[in-house]
């Protein structure tokens, strides 16, 4: 059983404010969806390995360096990224204080 309190908890984990009306309808949706997906438990998976990705099961690593060769417009690259910030100051991303008194 899913309660309003549960939904509140998962909304908090997702950092999402929800209204009382949303909460009510989410409880209903959750019940229906969870009832439907429950049938997965019928499947015997004792000797089955989980598929934890798309198709290929290995890690592909690369060196953590900026590949400037790829960039057609090296100078404006940084400016374009910072322009996408909701708030910025001197080319830095501006964030609200994490610790307040």
């Amino acid at each position: 059983m899913i309660t309003g309190k549960d939904v509140e908890h998962y909304a908090e984990l997702g950092r999402i404010a929800i209204t009382a009306t949303e909460k009510k309808s989410l409880v209903k949706d959750f019940e229906k969806i969870l009832e439907y997906v429950k049938k997965l438990n019928e499947v015997d998976t004792k000797h089955v390995k989980p598929m934890n990705g798309g198709v290929f099961f290995y890690n592909r690593v690369r060196s953590d360096t900026v590949d400037l060769e790829r960039k057609s417009d090296k100078v404006n690259e940084v400016a374009r990224v910072t322009r996408a910030f909701p708030k910025s100051k001197d080319g830095y991303l501006e964030v609200p204080p994490v610790f307040t008194e």
Binding site: R15, I16, A17, D29
Partner: peptide, 23 residues
């Protein structure tokens, strides 16, 4: 601020799926 931005910015379906994912 996070909660408000995401609460106002996301529609019903993304909210539903994010919460379901957390569950």
């Amino acid at each position: 601020m996070y909660q408000r931005n995401r609460g106002e910015g996301f529609g019903k379906e993304p909210k539903r799926r994010i919460l379901l994912g957390n569950y």
